[in-house]
């Protein structure tokens, strides 16, 4: 019978089991086995058309194997759709750095990272960077992290400040835009610009994530047909109310999750 083994078609005898697939890859010993999205240590029987991924426990996956794993580990059909999506992340601070990492892990095919800034020591309480990144452009530091996580995500970088003048050119090819800026004025500029100039683009913005108020106050709401807003709407970052990792990441996850849902055709918040 025909199966898919590590992303390529393979023939195995009727009655074959996972151990036969492992042998076919030339691997032995301590291996990871994933059968149709289910990771198992049991020598389960194979069925025609099943998808099998076999990898040494410490083996670095090739791009093909990584893609096969992505397809196997996500819900059926999801990885293929995500691989075709291009998402802009505008602002790579506490929101954007976390959004980008999550969307890359989930299998988004192309991320367009936009930020003019460099990593500094005040960022590390909530932003997805490391001490070794200090002084580096956020676009570059994040691109290197994504490269270290998965070979399945193409990363485009624009180390520029978004302005009324460059907005139309910057976002022309992005089907989805995630607004992750820090300043309220920058948020408004991007939201107005994208909604005015790209009526076919989905926009997911954020407002209200500072402090340590209830996590359950952070929500996603649909403001207009293609405009979603995440956050509690009111918690501004001001003296006395700082930005902290859990709530910033919580809001970032709301944004990444909504983007993922939109890519998969789910429009309800």
């Amino acid at each position: 019978m025909q199966i898919e083994l590590n992303g390529v078609p393979a023939a195995v005898p009727d009655g074959a089991r996972l151990s036969d697939a492992v042998a076919l890859t030339g691997r032995s010993g301590d291996v990871l086995m994933v059968l149709d999205g289910f990771q198992t240590g049991e020598d389960l029987p194979l069925t025609p058309g099943c998808r099998v991924t076999v990898l040494g426990r410490d083996e670095r996956p090739t791009a093909e194997t990584a893609l096969a794993l992505l397809c196997a580990r996500n819900s059926p059909g999801v990885a293929e759709v995500l691989q075709g999506a291009r998402v802009a992340v505008a602002g790579l601070g506490g929101l954007g750095s976390n959004v980008a990492i999550e969307l890359a892990r989930a299998g988004t095919g192309c991320l367009h990272l936009i930020d003019f800034d460099t990593v500094d020591a005040t960022n590390l309480n909530r932003q997805h960077y490391f001490l070794q990144d200090l002084g580096k452009r956020k676009t570059e530091a994040l691109a290197r992290q994504i490269e270290a996580i998965t070979p399945c995500c193409r990363v485009l970088t624009d180390p520029v400040r978004v302005t009324a003048d460059n907005l139309a050119a910057l976002f022309a090819l992005d089907g989805y835009v995630c607004e992750c800026f820090d300043r309220a004025e920058d948020k408004a500029l991007l939201v107005n610009g994208v909604l005015e100039q790209f009526p076919e683009t989905y926009l997911v913005a954020a407002s209200g994530l500072a402090g340590y108020g209830s996590g359950n106050a952070v929500v996603t709401r649909r403001v207009a047909e293609r405009f979603y807003l995440c956050g509690d709407g009111v918690s501004a970052a001001v003296p006395g109310c700082g930005l902290m990792a859990p709530r910033a990441a919580l809001c970032a996850s709301h944004q990444a999750h909504m983007i993922l849902r939109l890519i998969l055709g789910e429009t309800a918040p």
Partner: peptide, 30 residues
Amino acid sequence: NGEIVRKQDYANVRLCDGDEIEIVSFVGGG
């Protein structure tokens, strides 16, 4: 009514009977 109002039109747009207006205010933090 589901359409973005351009900033340069704020001074010209008159609120009409039956309008659904959504004002989204942003606060800082990201």
